[in-house]
Write a protein that binds this DNA or RNA. Structure first.
Lengths: 219, 219
DNA sequence: ATTACTACACTTCGAGTAT
DNA sequence: TATACTCGAAGTGTAGTAA
């Protein structure tokens, strides 16, 4: 058993901030090893100063110590460095139909001209919508949402407000484009809206349900 | 040996993007185990589909496969979630004098009213500037810069453009405030601009050179 | 020089079981 | 109910050595 997995189990239950209730058998079945082994591992982790324990009536209160936290943070930093250095966020998903509103917005001069000046291309009037299938892919979009990207400011016209949009230059199956994150979107984390100088459906011969790979270069 | 450590060693050498040259004895001495054990582990990892290998003349070319990459990403996501959930960025620095432009901007109604509506407080007209001393603290600011935060839009007046500003609610020595990240700032990564409903210098009895702690709650 | 086999020590595993 | 002990099996470690 990798001790990181043990700490991960505890950390997910909040054991970094406060003592949490655990039983060795639940923990074992969750991690795929026996109750006995968990018991032994907790004793070892305690000896090594990674966790502290206090016996409850029919369970233990376990907390991750600063030593344990430091160990986890080291691994986290190493992993983050490796993946951030490569500086790519890759998402996979399936082509789906949009609500045609992307087409409308991208045909507005105020948007398309700003995009031209900020991203260096005039967007084809329309967006390609991609449904992200796995949780990992949605997490990637969440990460994008938390980043700044290239902002295309909103505007008002005839009493109506058109919200701002953030863009993240990307490659979709090798073709230049950008992921669109509207300030106010109809879609959740599971749908990616893509613009491109090209009509992507035509250019990549895409139909609904086709698999595509979107690569965003970050940093 | 935790297999994550093996993948970490390879990942640090760039084995996610391309095959890298390694020898079992170097890898072993770096990881603190024998050449023989590394040899056996690499065979195991290859069998498990985590890495691919090709024999060179006096070394191996090793690359992490998509399976191995996925394993690493899972661990990374789990760790990031655990630490991001706790959601605090803490920075330390010393109070320094600003250029008095913060005072000017915060006295503009367009800004202060928007801040009132978005952050829930009317900013004292002035910013507290903090010089971040360590690289770690600057890295924290960099992380903030890459996040979205609460956006206060810019505006135009009399032909002049006032840029937008992003805010991150924070506590400074326990007092409510917000870190300001102007779209176009005079300051680099090493200076933090803070606003608050209070005159922080008065309220916290601060003089230039005093140490302060800024805690930003994220997520 | 390298990798990786064999052999054997030591560690970690789960089942049974005491508490 | 829970934890954690003993003990035989399986896994992981290094040394020696072949290729």
């Amino acid at each position: 058993m990798e001790i990181l997995n043990l700490l991960l189990y505890l950390g997910k239950r909040g054991a970094i901030a406060k003592p949490v209730t655990i039983t060795t058998s639940k923990m074992g079945s969750k991690l795929g090893i026996s109750q006995q082994s968990i018991s032994r591992w907790l004793i070892t982790l305690e000896k090594d100063g990674m966790i502290s324990r206090e016996k409850g009536i029919r369970s233990y209160f376990v907390q991750i110590t600063p030593v344990g936290k430091k160990y986890m943070q080291e691994k986290r930093n190493e992993l983050n460095e490796i993946f951030e250095r490569s500086g790519k966020i890759v998402m996979r998903g399936k082509v789906v139909s949009g609500m045609l509103d992307g087409k409308y917005y991208m045909s507005l001069k105020k948007y398309s001209e700003k995009i031209k000046s900020r991203l260096g291309f005039k967007p084809y009037p329309g967006t390609l919508n991609i449904r992200l299938d796995t949780i990992d892919d949605s997490q990637c979009k969440k990460k994008l949402c938390a980043m700044k990207g290239t902002e295309i400011p909103g505007f008002r016209r005839g009493g109506r407000t058109f919200g701002s949009v953030r863009c993240f230059p990307c490659r979709i199956s090798g073709v230049k484009g950008a992921v669109l994150i509207p300030e106010r979107s109809h879609y959740g984390l599971e749908v990616l809206e893509i613009i491109s100088p090209f009509n992507l459906r035509q250019r990549l011969k895409l139909s609904n349900g086709d698999d595509v790979k979107v690569k965003v270069i970050v940093g």
